[in-house]
């Protein structure tokens, strides 16, 4: 093994951590995951209203599209 290949030498199974980069990646990943879950389970139009305006709330596109999944995966639905 060359020294340049591994930034931190750990046991073979260990997690290689670059604190700043991995912190940012983890934060971004968690945000993306939460937005996806919000769309499937919680959204009542807020997600699309910046793009579509008021119709996003009245037609509730995201909610209606995810409707069956929301019921089946035990989220509260209208």
């Amino acid at each position: 093994m060359s020294a340049s290949a591994a930034p931190q030498v750990r046991p073979a199974a260990g997690l290689v951590v670059h604190p700043l980069r991995d912190g940012l990646i983890a934060t971004a990943a968690v945000i993306v995951a939460l937005v996806a879950l919000d769309a499937v389970f919680l959204d009542q139009g807020a997600l699309l209203s910046p793009v579509l305006g008021k119709v996003a709330t009245s037609a509730n596109y995201v909610h209606e599209f995810a409707h069956d999944g929301r019921h089946l995966l035990a989220g509260p639905c209208h």
Binding site: A33, L34, A36, L37, V40, L73
Partner: peptide, 8 residues
């Protein structure tokens, strides 16, 4: 919805 939920 199922795929999105699973991936998230």
């Amino acid at each position: 919805a199922a795929v999105l939920t699973g991936a998230a």
